[in-house]
């Protein structure tokens, strides 16, 4: 439970107006600098006095990082575009509604009005041992407090856990993976474009970070190719309360069918592992098959192969099996959106 502790400790606030200026400032401060987007992940770290940067580099004055543009092959979303804009943009709603659906289910209206797409995909894990400042593996220590016989780990990983059992909590990340989005990164050496999947890091590769971003790197934009425009989409998020709560699990799929045969498909889940997982094996298994309950069943089973439950999160295995199944067969009432429309 959060505790109000007076104001945040002092830091210098730097407000560059271009990406180049931001990069200079980040280079100057190195590991003492902190990138600030909407601040909804950042402020918890600062208020809890767990992260103590000397300088906070606020990206909110950089116009080149804002807005949604059409490109020769799809759209490009500036990293500082708010989740509300992403959820309401008419082109995204029309062609890539998987992303609008996922953005609309993030947190609360006020958080979506301020939280950015770049911050949402780059946010850190919410494992409360780690966020509480416990010296765990992820914080550079040599124990995982969430993986002991008495640990509270209902929200934690069932797949790919390697010492650390934290999960990536982003709702938009799996939607972007299913849409085959590309992330544009500005490093000291220049621009780099990576697949959405390749933006994320599992603990066996680097236990201290969730993304490939290194100190000084900036995510500048997210590109969505037109290849999946107008596909059949499915997004479902399961959480305790309908507002604020991070996903216990979510699933995103994009599919093209001819007749009832699955021609092309991409599926991703999040909150199952330390990175959003693209379910490539499942995609390969169902491609060319009928879009039926049976195929959904196969997909669900395959998706949880190798899953290892902790003390309190075994429910995530049947949950993931069912969500993956539904991401192929769909559900009669149209899923969660119907709840708000009533």
């Amino acid at each position: 439970m959060a505790v109000i502790r007076d104001v945040m400790p002092a830091f210098e606030l730097l407000q560059p107006s271009s990406v180049a200026d931001a990069q200079h400032l980040l280079a100057r401060y190195g590991s003492d600098g902190w990138v600030l987007a909407g601040g909804l992940d950042s402020f918890d770290w600062l208020k809890d006095r767990i992260k103590k940067p000397k300088a906070v580099i606020d990206l909110s004055g950089i116009h080149e990082l804002k807005g949604i543009r059409s490109t020769a092959d799809g759209i490009e979303i500036g990293a500082m575009t708010t989740l509300t804009e992403v959820a309401q943009n008419p082109v995204i709603k029309q062609k890539y509604s998987l992303l609008s659906q996922s953005a609309e289910l993030v947190a609360s209206p006020q958080i979506r009005n301020q939280g950015t797409i770049g911050g949402n995909v780059s946010q850190d894990t919410r494992c409360w041992y780690y966020r509480g400042g416990w010296p765990c593996y992820r914080a550079g220590g040599n124990i995982c407090y969430a993986d002991t016989p008495v640990a509270r780990n209902r929200e934690h990983a069932i797949l790919e856990a390697e010492r650390c059992v934290a999960v990536n909590p982003s709702d938009t990340a799996p939607a972007l993976i299913a849409l085959d989005a590309k992330f544009v990164i500005r490093t000291a050496k220049g621009e780099r474009v990576v697949d959405a999947e390749g933006y994320y890091v599992a603990p066996d590769r680097d236990i201290t970070r969730l993304t490939i971003l290194q100190a000084g790197d900036l995510l500048t934009a997210i590109r969505i190719p037109s290849a999946w425009a107008g596909a059949e989409f499915y997004f479902e998020k399961v959480r305790d309360r309908n507002v604020w709560d991070f996903p216990l699990l979510n699933v995103a799929s994009a599919m093209f069918t001819s007749g009832n045969t699955i021609d092309k498909i991409r599926i991703a889940v999040n909150a199952a592992a330390a990175r959003p997982l693209r379910l490539k094996k499942v995609e390969d298994a169902v491609r060319g098959k009928q879009r039926s309950a049976e195929t959904g069943e196969i997909a669900g089973k395959l998706s949880v192969q190798g899953a290892v439950p902790l003390q309190f999160n075994a429910y995530k295995i049947p949950l993931m099996r069912n969500l993956v199944k539904r991401s192929i067969t769909g559900v009669a009432n149209g899923g969660q959106e119907a709840a708000w429309a009533s």
Binding site: A2, D58, S108, N113
Partner: peptide
């Protein structure tokens, strides 16, 4: 809450609702 988790600090910034506990005044 001072943590963007309750809404009691909501104000409008350029007509849009924000949690004032989670906005730096300088911005």
């Amino acid at each position: 809450c001072d943590r963007a988790e309750c809404g009691s600090c909501t104000v409008l910034i350029d007509d849009v609702p924000h949690y004032a506990c989670s906005v730096l005044t300088h911005t």
